[in-house]
Amino acid sequence: MDKLLFQIWRGDAGSGAVQDYYTNVSEGMVVLDAIHQIQAEQANDLAVRWNCKAGKCGSCSAEINGMPKLMCMTRLSDLPSGQAVLVKPMKAFPLIKDLVTDVSWNYKVKKQIKKFKPRAPDAKDGTWRMYQEDIDRVQEFRKCIECYLCQNVCHVLREHELYDKFIGPRFLIYAASLEMHPLDTEDRLGELKESHGIGFCNITKCCTKVCPESIAITDNGIIPLKERVVDRYFDPLRKFVRWILRKK
């Protein structure tokens, strides 16, 4: 069995540094396996979040060799052979300890988005009729596992730290999944334009690139939402009508 060097960020909000750990690696291993092995054998107090180990829960997000990824879905054989593996926590969120960050901001943001509000049921028994082709797009958005890797790479959050002005790609997709839901009757365009800050997104598509669920975040979600906002608030004809109505 080969030994491989893992350089893992250890520390808390106050201070910290990358520490070296050598551990045995074998066929098929993912980064999370190595982290667990190190935790069990050399560093019992190493902090790491994980649950399903199958890319379904979105808990083990980290930056592996500088790339935002799920540790459970990153195989060692996909990294440069024989080279040290650098594992750091997500940068866009405050550090709690080691590889664990405080992602509570995301939970607060979600609460601010108006909840699902269905139209009256279509059938007497209280059920609705929807066709598969009408829900395919929203089902794509609902694949999201809330790993927050898209939030982590979005420069509006990561570099410019506009946490109070912009909800980030995850929640634009969440808003899109509600807005494009065939049954939903709520209107969220006003907030999207103002407090949710959709205008800050300048479509660099970094979020789409890191999405482990391969959701076309920008093309299928954010751009259509932007178009809806533009149609409502910046269409010259509508602007004129609004102006006339106000004059009355």
Partner: peptide
């Protein structure tokens, strides 16, 4: 299950639009 649909769940559909 039907209650989940009222809360926004989107199950796969039959050709006549049911769950």
């Amino acid at each position: 299950v039907r209650e989940l649909e009222a809360w926004g769940a989107l199950f796969d559909r039959t050709t006549d639009g049911k769950i």
